[in-house]
Simulated assay, not measured.
Amino acid sequence: MKMVISGGGTGGHIYPALALVKEVMSREPDSKVLYIGTQEGLEADLVPKEGIPFQSVYITGFKRSLSFDNVKTIWRFIKATRRAKQLIRDFNPDVVVGTGGYVCGPVVYAAHSIGIPTLIHEQNVIPGLTNKFLSRYSNCIAASFSGSSSYFPKEKTVVTGNPRATEVAQADGSRGRQSLDLPTGKKYILIVGGSRGARAINEAVADMIPMMAEHPDYFFIYVTGEIHYEKVIEDIRASKPANLLVRPFIYNMPEVLAGIDLIVNRAGASFLAEITSLGLPSILIPSPYVTNNHQEKNARWLESQGATRVILESELSGSKLLSSIDAILRDSGTERHMREASKSLGLPHAATLVYNQLKSIAKG
């Protein structure tokens, strides 16, 4: 298979793309892949490190309010589409895939305009502007959650899950616990605010630290983010309880996720795919700083399915966070129900499901 894939801006768009590339290469080792992103996005760093050929176009996102910048964006879209057409013609792929971010707009549209089959993947429950626009130009729309289906044409929408979930579902939880040298016989709670950390979550955990010693059956793994680590360590040095492990970052996150009992985190789409593939109960604290408030919409949908508890950042405190943890882990029925609900939403074979859709639409 020859595939062009595009996804950019954040890891939530890039990691599913990379997981799909791995799936394609594992099934068809002779496949050729070209990744088209932007030089400004995280993809310009991550993709070449994976040994995947990378090309870029220049494009910016639309403002949601009336702005002269949108006129400039339309012109950039036209130029980016022209360049994407040339890149696609030169590569001559069997299929073009978009996994989100505004760079997918000109790439997928260009492929459609020259007759190349296209697939877009939507990670969030509520689709973004780019995928709503591209849905009319795509042969197939792969959705991570069934809650997305009503936003797209029914006849070409398939719920596949998120390819990133496949990598996490295969992880070994015992290796994750061993890598952190965790004590046995505890309930393991992982608290993390994303790769760069989240100040509000860090502050809530700082408030909770004096109460942790009163819960010796719990063991807390607290990931601060690199930029917050030194300050957090300094702040808690005199009061750090024995059942708390603090790390700036965890590199083997899939293994660690597979070995814990409860996670506290933001509500990014790829992360939700990971925890549902494992059937993990969660407490989600959506970031209020993201476009279209999509994290809260993701979290509320999972909450409506019984898989999570949601605490808004404006309502967050150490006591509220700890009482929410207790409400789940002190009640075996609640914990079991949340595990079952989370697992029912997960699609651990998502990469295979998306691959099958690719095969069904690819030319030749």
Score class of each variant (00 low, 15 high):
59 I>D: 06
99 T>K: 04
291 T>Q: 10
68 F>Q: 00
49 K>N: 12
129 L>S: 04
40 E>K: 15
182 L>E: 02
278 L>D: 10
209 I>W: 06
19 A>R: 14
72 K>H: 01
316 L>K: 08
335 E>S: 14
178 Q>R: 15
93 P>S: 02
213 A>T: 14
38 T>A: 10
356 N>C: 04
226 E>H: 12
296 E>T: 13
88 I>M: 13
58 Y>V: 11
158 V>W: 04
348 P>V: 01
216 P>G: 09
142 A>V: 01
235 D>G: 04
152 F>P: 05
346 G>T: 01
55 Q>R: 15
37 G>Q: 04
337 H>I: 05
364 G>L: 07
50 E>S: 13
4 V>W: 12
121 H>G: 02
37 G>I: 06
41 G>E: 05
241 P>F: 02
325 I>Q: 08
155 E>P: 08
314 S>I: 00
247 R>Q: 15
226 E>G: 08
194 G>H: 13
207 D>L: 10
132 K>H: 03
174 S>G: 00
2 K>Y: 14
353 L>Y: 02
309 R>W: 09
29 P>C: 07
82 R>L: 10
263 I>S: 13
57 V>P: 03
288 P>D: 11
128 G>N: 02
83 R>Y: 07
172 D>I: 15
72 K>C: 00
13 H>E: 02
73 T>Q: 09
106 P>D: 05
355 Y>P: 00
116 I>E: 01
285 I>Q: 07
220 F>T: 11
335 E>I: 00
178 Q>G: 02
309 R>G: 00
60 T>R: 15
357 Q>L: 13
183 P>D: 06
243 N>F: 10
276 T>W: 07
324 S>W: 05
204 A>C: 09
39 Q>C: 07
246 V>Q: 02
16 P>L: 04
284 L>P: 10
264 V>I: 14
169 A>H: 06
259 G>R: 14
7 G>H: 05
316 L>F: 03
363 K>V: 04
45 D>G: 01
126 I>H: 12
167 E>S: 09
125 V>N: 03
46 L>V: 11
85 K>Q: 14
256 V>G: 02
339 R>F: 01
96 V>N: 04
32 K>G: 05
110 A>M: 07
9 G>Q: 11
194 G>S: 07
139 N>F: 00
111 A>F: 05
110 A>S: 14
346 G>W: 03
145 F>H: 08
266 R>W: 15
281 P>G: 09
349 H>Y: 00
300 R>S: 13
255 E>I: 06
118 T>N: 12
29 P>A: 06
364 G>N: 11
155 E>C: 00
88 I>V: 13
25 M>V: 14
220 F>R: 14
56 S>F: 12
256 V>C: 10
72 K>M: 07
83 R>Q: 10
190 L>K: 12
16 P>E: 11
336 R>L: 14
305 Q>T: 09
133 F>S: 00
110 A>V: 08
217 D>H: 15
351 A>E: 04
